[in-house]
Amino acid sequence: MSNEHEEKVLSIYVYEAPLRLWHWINALAITVLAVTGYLIGSPPEAMIGEASEHYRMGIIRFLHFGAGYVLLFGFIGRIYWAFAGNEHARELFVPKMYSILWWKELLTELKWYLFLTKEPHKYVGHNPLAQFAMFFIFLVGMVFMICTGFALYSEGAGAGTWSAVAFGWVRDIFPNSQTLHTWHHLGMWYLLTFVMAHVYVAIREDIMSRQSIVSTMISGHRLFKDDRP
C-alpha cells in the first residue's frame, strides 16, 4: 500500500528499564492474584483422601499472598522510581489536572475514541485520557486492593504483625470482615475491567494512533509514525 509514502519515524526514550520491568512483573502478579483470588472465593471441587496428604487451598492462598507481596513491593519500588526516574515515571501519580490545556486534550482524546475526530494528537507519555484512567481506575484500584488485601491478610497474621499495624485500620472502616472480603472481591473485577480496556486500547492505539504503544513498554522507545505536529 504505502510504498510511495516515506514514513518519517521519530523515536524518544520514554520508559526506563525499571519501569518496564515493574510493568510486566505487576501484570504477572495481578494475573496470579486474580486467578487465586477467584479460587479462594469459589474453591475447586473437593479433594478426597486424608487431609494431611493435601494442601491445595493452602497453596492457592500461598500463591495469593506471595503475589500480593510482589505487588506491594513492586508498588513501593514504583513509587521510588517516580522520584528517581524521568518525568514520565511521575505521570501515573500526578495527572496535571490543574492545567486547562490538560482538560482540553482530554476532551480531544475522548472525541478521538468516540470517532468524532479524524486524527489524534501525538503524545510522548500517556495522553490525558489515559492518565485519567491510569490514575482513577488503576492507581486508586491498586491502593484499594493493597490496603484491603493486606488488611485481610492481617486477620490471619494476627495482632502485632506488621500487616496489622500498617493496615489494621482498614478493618475498622468496614462493618465486618465479610463485607471487607466482598469489597476486595469487587475490587478484583474493577481492576480486571481496567486490564481489559487497557490491553484493548494499547493494541488499538498501536495500530491507529500516531505513535507506538505496546512495543514502547518492551523497548522503552516511543516511535512516532509521522513528523507532523
Binding site: W189, L192, T193
Partner: peptide, 23 residues
C-alpha cells in the same frame, strides 16, 4: 461480587468488541 464482576467484565468485553469493529 462474582456475578457483578463477570457482568461488568462481559459488558466491557462487549463494548471493546463494538469499539474494535468500529475502529
Amino acid at each position: 461480587a462474582d456475578t457483578i464482576g463477570m457482568g461488568v467484565a462481559a459488558g466491557t468485553a462487549a463494548a471493546i468488541g463494538v469499539h474494535a469493529v468500529a475502529s
